[in-house]
Each structure stands twice: as C-alpha cells, then as structure tokens.
Design a protein around this nucleic acid. Structure first.
Lengths: 203, 203
DNA sequence: TATTGTTTTAAACTAAATTTTAAACATAAA
DNA sequence: TTTATGTTTAAAATTTAGTTTAAAACAATA
C-alpha cells in the first residue's frame, strides 16, 4: 500500500509526458515502462490497457488545465475584465505546457467520438454564465449585439492556434524559443484589444 | 504501362483518404491495400515504404490546397479585397474537405521536423508581398500601423481553428452538419469584418 | 514463338507491441 | 506462524504491422 500509489503515479506521469511529446500512437508500452522504471506488465496491472491509461490521462489533463479558466468564466467579473483575465490566464497555461494544444488537436483527430462522449466540451467550451453576459450586455447596449458562439470561437482560436503552429511561426519569422515567448506575450495585449474592439458599441 | 498509372493512383488515392480520415499511424498498409483493391506488396512496389508514400501524399495535399491561396496573396489586389478573397477562398477550401485542418494539426504534432524541412511553410504562411502591403499601408497611414506576423496569425487562426474543433462546436451548440455549414458561412463575413476593423486607421 | 520487362499474387519473414499467466515477493491480519 | 492479499517480476503467448521474396501472369516486341 506504500509503493502502490507510487508506482501507479510513476506510470501515469511517464505516460503523460510521452503521450504529449511523441503522441499516443508513437509511444509504446515499453517506452512507458522504461521511462517509469517499472516492469512491462505493471501497466496492465494498474490500468487494464494502453487505451484505458490514455483515457485516464486525457481526462486528467483536461480537468487540470481548465480548472482556472472555468473559475474565471463562471465568476462575477465584469465582462471586459473577464475577457482580459481569460486571455491572460489561458496563455499562461499554454506557456507552461506549449505542446498541449498540438497534442489536444492530434487527439481530436485521433478519436473524435471519445471527446464528445466525455465532459470535455463543457469544460473547454462555451460556459453558460459568460454566454448570458454577452447576450445581456448586447441587449442593454453596453456592447454591440454579439453572437456568443462566434465570440467564443474567435477568442480560443486566437489564443490557442499559434501554439499549434509554433514550429511554423518560429521557422518563418526566424525566432528562437525566447523570441517565440515574446511573440506570445505580445499576443496577450493584442488579442484582448482585438476582442474588446469587436464588441464595442456602435458609434 | 496502361494499368501502371492506374494502380499507383489507386494506392495514392486510397491512402490519402484513409490518412486524412483515420490518421497515418492508425492506417495499416493492409487497410490501404484493401481499400485500393490491390495486393499488399504493391504498395511497396510503387512507393518504397509507408512513410515514403505518406511524404508524397502530404506534399501533394499542401500543394493542391494552397495553390489558390498563394495566387491571391501574391496578386496585385488592393489590401481590403485581398483579405476578403483570402478569407472566403480559404473557408471554401475547408468546406470541401473539413478534415484537412484536423489532419494537418495531427501531422504537425506527429512529425514537426518534416514540416520545417519541406517548403510547406512558404506555401502556407506569410507570403512576402502581402507582408509588404501591410507594412507599406501602415506607413502611408491608410491603415493602422500593424505587425504583419500577428495579423497573419489572427487571420489563419480564426479561419482554420473552427474546423479543427468542429466536433466540439457541433456538440455544444447542438448543430447538425447543415447547421455547422451555416455557422461557417457566417464566419466569412464575420472574420473579414473583424480583420478589417482591427487595422482601420485610428480616428 | 521466344525473350524480356513489368505487374501482380500469395506466402513468408521480421520485428515489435500488447496482453496473459504464473510464480515470487512483501506485508499485514488472523 | 500461517494465511491471505496486494504488489512486482519474468517469461510466454498472441496479435499486429511493415517489409521482403519468389514465382506466376501479363504485355509488348523482336
């Protein structure tokens, strides 16, 4: 019962890193066992199969990385502040783990079915309260009448997509790692500005 | 010499469809052979290996799907028209083949190295003439001073990303295939508007 | 018709991955 | 101490996938 949690955790963590770095299908159970420093069969003892292990890991990644964002979306913040905080926090999360978007996109292609089954959607996409806020303020006239679903898509597109095409951006603009981080840092201001401008009430 | 091109083509087309639909690593050579209605060994006869076949297919997909976009970017169109046409044409291409973005993202995760080696970048991302145009007009004051690399990223993010998360959008908003197409059609206008607004000269 | 080159087929080979089984080990409860 | 339970290891079985081989079928032409 002492080493139990330990080994399970070691497998979980090793697999998480490898899946994100190399992709699920290009990571073998042997890779995982080696990296975790455990015997091959232990993966099967703790998780029933590779696919099962992956499900657990994926669910955990979603939960872990959306927690703060959900809190912001569901908060009582004023709309403008909510947008600023959301953009900034989301980008910070992705700076911490730059492969996350790319990995997530790959999974979305690998197993579309799974994702709609899981509660991923409700974590990642279109929180009720935020949607209401946009509709309400549109009615009141404090912002332009705006379709929340498009606003949401605009927002996460501009935040996340650059991470997915990071190698292209770096290569094209001849950026090193530090330059790219600067590029991303600038986007915090840039995206926030653009989003706010897009809903400014008509003159 | 008669059936030659035929078989090669059949393999190429079957593999293209399967790769896009299921992903490269989840498509076996046997799948390809079955779908193409040919013998297993023929894949190796015509293309030397699976990876080789994939390289050919990927290069072809990039070339085929960026041709029209490059033409627009390198044209003498006035900036505003160029943006409209680019957005509209790009979205039309993706409507034709909605899995393309998702597939491309998966490849970008699967084999980052390959993509920077190939000339993909120069096709897909940041054409010289367009960049110059933004800089020039910024100087002249016909548009706000704008960083072309960010403008470019904004543009392709908002155009392509929704296709990558298509299952999420459909599920969350309870859209069927037709609804989604309507959603996308609206984005043509919406994105164009947003981009133009973002570079409008300051009042 | 004989020769040559190309295309196709079926079967075999190789390597590697996943999964299963059973035995060894350790710990703690009876 | 013995028994039971959970954990770990080692080895073997099974499955899957990519590639190769060798021979047959076919087509063209000399």
């Amino acid at each position: 019962m002492s080493k139990n949690k330990n080994t399970e955790q070691k497998i979980f963590e090793a697999a998480t890193e490898l899946f994100i770095e190399k992709g699920v299908d290009r990571t073998s159970v042997r890779d995982i066992a080696t990296k975790a420093g455990i015997n091959l069969a232990l993966m099967n003892y703790y998780f029933r199969s590779k696919e099962n292990l992956f499900d657990a890991i994926f669910a955990n990644l979603v939960k872990k990385n959306t927690k703060d964002l959900i809190k912001i979306m569901d908060s009582d913040l004023e709309l403008n502040d909510k947008i600023s905080q959301y953009v900034s926090t989301y980008i910070d999360i992705l700076i911490e783990n730059p492969l996350l978007v790319s990995f997530f996109m790959a999974i979305l292609h690998r197993s579309r079915e799974k994702i709609t089954e899981m509660d991923v959607i409700h974590n990642l996409y279109g929180r009720e309260k935020f949607t209401q806020q946009i509709l309400d303020e549109g009615k009141k006239g404090t912002i332009k009448k705006t379709d929340p679903s498009h606003f949401y898509v605009d927002m996460i597109s501009m935040i996340t997509f650059p991470f997915a095409i990071k190698p292209l951006i770096m290569d094209k603009n001849e950026l090193n790692e530090a330059d790219f981080m600067e590029f991303i840092a600038y986007r915090k201001i840039h995206i926030t500005q653009m989003l706010k401008d897009s809903i400014k009430p008509c003159p």
